[in-house]
């Protein structure tokens, strides 16, 4: 059993962090093999950024697969670029604040939420990735939510002030993910 996930968006949307949190949580809490592979241009902000997470019972071959089981898109160009890689009947997670175009793939399960606006409502646009991670975990339960939260908590260890905001963002995402299951 192997799950391929691609997370794609603008640089600065926390795409890498989202993938890394998920992959690290899998490493910490399971015996499964997991890889995280980033791909981005020379820019620190802006430009396109995407990462691939593969979770598998077997040895992971390619750390970026040709066909994605799940696809998270945070902006319009990412949808256009990666929608073709989503497997038949795969799940598409969409940031509907930015992605306004029609989803042409009728076979795909679509989980959508305006995560940019939801993050702004929480008072910080930067947590959109944590909301999206919450949605992904709430919907797929690929890793237990406690472990994912534990990883976020650990990673934010040096900035404890940010924990309540991130907790709120993660829980908001979880609720949305579960409700769309």
């Amino acid at each position: 059993m192997e799950t391929n996930l691609c997370v794609a968006g603008f640089g600065g949307q926390g795409v890498m962090t989202l993938g890394k949190f998920l992959a690290e949580a899998t490493c910490d809490s399971t015996d499964k093999n997991v890889t995280f592979f980033p791909s981005y241009g020379a820019e620190q902000r802006g430009g396109t950024a995407n990462c691939f997470v593969v979770i598998s019972d077997e040895m992971v071959g390619a750390p970026l697969g040709d066909v994605m089981d799940d696809l998270i898109v945070m902006n319009e160009p990412s949808l256009d670029r990666f929608i073709g890689t989503l497997k038949e009947g795969g799940t598409l997670f969409v940031n509907s604040s930015i992605v306004k175009g029609e989803i042409t793939r009728k076979d795909a399960k679509v989980v959508s939420a305006p995560v940019t606006e939801l993050a702004l409502e929480l008072g910080n646009a930067k947590v959109l990735n944590v909301i999206m991670l919450g949605i992904y975990i709430g919907y797929t339960e690929v890793v237990s939510l406690e472990v994912v939260w534990g990883t976020i908590e650990h990673k934010l260890g040096k900035k404890p002030k940010l924990l309540p905001l991130n907790k709120e963002a993660f829980e908001k995402g979880l609720a949305i993910g579960r409700s769309q299951r």
Binding site: K20, A23, E24, C27, N33, V34, T35, F36, F37, P38, V60, P63
Partner: peptide, 9 residues
Amino acid sequence: GVIGTMMEP
């Protein structure tokens, strides 16, 4: 560069 930039356990 793949092995250099990827993460795994």
